[in-house]
Every structure is written in structure tokens, then in C-alpha cells.
Design a protein around this nucleic acid. Structure first.
Lengths: 189, 189
DNA sequence: AGTTTAATTAAACACTGGTCAATAAAAAGG
DNA sequence: CCTTTTTATTGACCAGTGTTTAATTAAACT
């Protein structure tokens, strides 16, 4: 008898994304259902499909902004007044910090194997990696090869993906992060 | 009218695991359903629950043997007649090769975040890592620290988990694997 | 007023993992 | 051989999932 809400509380993409983001952060992609998101907002799940084609599109829309955040962090880091060696270390640490402070987003960007999700997530990570790789090449004054930047990325990725799985925060593993980054930097020292 | 199959084709744990392994390899844990496994064998999904408590237990039973396989590979590697430096390199490569040749198992051992699965998978990876770590310490004659073995593991893990996600085989990325291992070894050289 | 358009609902579909009473086949006991 | 017990299998069921769609209504336009 009430197949329509008043316009004062009309559903927007932003509202859906906000609710999704909240649940996503708490439980991860697979554990959040469209019905949960909708009921969080007092709507039925069908209404979400008016605003987003499917679950993967909704969640990709969410993390798209986070890719930009990662890129922004890298830019900010590069613009700091600091000697290159120190900066290099900070960039690697920043990557880890980003990953562990945005676990669900990191999960979706680099970890999820879901085919539906992968069809959305391809440009983003590539561009972010490009920026990351470029930064490393600049800071080391071309003393490292492209292959080395890829190995650095993979080594950081190993750290982040491992600690993404456990419930530990960045603060919990900060010391380990430092030692891992030092380990990596020894390879190019 | 036929709630029982003839004994000639009675379902066994081994049959279920074989069917599960086949589908698992093709599609990964999440994409394989109990009903698919059962219908692969011409049974109903309920019958699987007579032999296994739940999906996680079934799949853990499957990969338990693969943990032993990984441990065995490490042992074999250690018993080879070879100088330590070369052996060290071979061990790291073997880890990558194992991961990419048993993607679904690796996924379940080290990647899956599913709570139900994690409750089963804990001893296995830990023991395998212990063996791995011990091997490194031996081969490098205590020149590396425990922390370094952990960083080595994480760096390898990054490589494997990244290429697990794509559909590439070990052969596809063999060259990259070599260069990544060389990169890692530079840190302890 | 009537018409059009945009947004929401509820019901449906085809799945999922998991449980369980009913049941029939096989094994055991007499 | 007949009866009882055990064991393995079924199929119906539950609660949940992502997704589609016809119906409905609120709002905007004419």
C-alpha cells in the first residue's frame, strides 16, 4: 500500500554508497548483502538496482574514490621536502599504511578474485601502480629497473594482503612494516 | 521412491574429495557449490553432509594432503646435493612454483578470509612456514634473522597471491619469478 | 484536470549452505 | 530365512543470496 517514499527522503547514489561503505568496512565485500544495505537505509533491496546495475558496480563506485585517495597520498608524499632516500622509505610505508587502513577497499582493488568484480576493477589498480612505479623511478634517479619496482610492489602487496586477512591494524604491525620496508630497500641499496 | 543407492556405487569421502578437487581447481572455493559436487557424482547434496560436516571441512580435508606435499618438496630440496646459495634460490622458486601449480589450494591456505575456512586452516600454514623458515636459517648459516625469513615469505606471498588472481600459470611467469627471487636474495646477500 | 516520467515496492526466480525426518538397502543377529 | 539394527541416501525444507520485473505511486509537466 505504500510503493513509494516521500521525495524528502529520496534515495541517492551517495546514500547507498555511504551505507554500503559502512557495512563493507565492517564485514568485507562477500559478507555484505544488498538487502542489508537497503534495510540500513529503510528501503527495499530492489531500489538499489535502480541506482546501480549490480553489486559489483556499486562497490566499484565506492572504491573508485579510494584509488584517487591512494594516488593523492603518493602525490603528497612526492611533494614533501625531504631527501630522496627518506622519501622512498616513506612511500613504501605509505602504501602499507593505506592498505591496512582501507582493508576492504584494498581487498577489492587487489585481492578479490570474483569475476564480476574484476570486470570493473582493472584500470584503477593499473593507474595507481603506474604512479607508484614512476615515483620509485624518480626517487632512485633511475638506479632501479622497472622489474625492480614491480618486485617492490609485490613484496609490499604480500605484507598488506597477509595482514588484511588477520584482524590487525596498521598500528599493530607498524614495527613489522618498518622492518619489512627496510628489508625491501636493502635490495636496491 | 529411491532413497538409497546400491552399494556397488556407495559414496566415499575419497569420491567426494576427488569431485570437489576437480571443480575446485577449475573455479575456486566460492564458486563451487555442494550441489555441483554432488551432481557431478550423481548424488544429492544432502549425502555429502553425511561424510563431511560442512563445506569448509570438505575443502580442508582436500588441501591437508597438499600441505604435506609442500613440506615434502621442502625436504626434498634440502636433501639435494647442491651448494647452499643455489639451494636457497631453488627453495624460493619452489615456493612460487608450488603456489602457482596449486592455486586453489594456495588460495585456501593463505588467501581466503572466510571465517569458516580460517577456523580449519591454521595449523597447516604455520607448520609449513616453520619448515620454510628453518630451511632458510640453515642454508644461510644463521646469517639472516627470523624477521628476514618472514619478509622473504611475505615477498614471495605477494608474488604468488598476485598471479593467483590472474589466470597465468607458473610457466607464464617463470622469468618474472626468477627476477623476483633474485630481487629478494639481494636483500640478504 | 489529465498525462508523463521517475522512483519504489513486492513478488518472483534461480541459486546458495545447511538440517532433518523418512526411507530403503545392507549388515548383523537369531 | 527372518527380524532387527545400522547405515547411507533422499527430498523437502529453511533462511539466505543477487537479480529481474510488473505494478504502483509521487512528483512534474502540460
Amino acid at each position: 500500500m505504500s510503493p513509494r517514499k516521500a521525495v524528502a527522503q529520496e534515495l541517492t547514489k551517495e546514500m547507498v554508497m555511504a551505507a554500503a561503505r559502512k557495512l563493507f568496512r565492517e564485514k568485507g565485500y562477500q559478507q555484505v548483502s544488498m538487502r542489508q544495505i537497503a534495510s540500513e537505509l529503510g528501503y527495499t533491496h530492489g531500489s538499489i538496482y535502480y541506482h546501480f546495475k549490480n553489486k559489483a558496480e556499486l562497490f566499484y563506485a565506492m572504491i573508485e574514490t579510494d584509488f584517487k585517495l591512494l594516488d593523492q597520498w603518493l602525490d603528497d608524499m612526492m611533494n614533501l621536502e625531504m631527501d630522496n632516500d627518506r622519501k622512498l622509505k616513506e612511500i613504501l610505508l605509505a602504501f602499507i599504511r593505506f592498505g591496512l587502513s582501507h582493508k576492504s577497499q584494498y581487498e577489492m582493488m587487489f585481492l578479490l578474485a570474483d569475476e564480476e568484480v574484476k570486470s570493473y576493477v582493472n584500470k584503477g589498480p593499473n593507474e595507481s601502480y603506474e604512479k607508484f612505479s614512476q615515483s620509485l623511478l624518480e626517487l632512485s634517479k633511475r638506479e632501479i629497473t622497472i622489474q625492480q619496482t614491480w618486485s617492490i610492489f609485490l613484496s609490499l602487496h604480500g605484507f598488506v594482503s597477509h595482514y588484511c586477512r588477520c584482524d590487525e591494524t596498521y598500528e599493530d604491525v607498524e614495527n613489522l612494516a618498518h622492518s619489512h620496508v627496510n628489508f625491501i630497500l636493502k635490495s636496491i641499496g
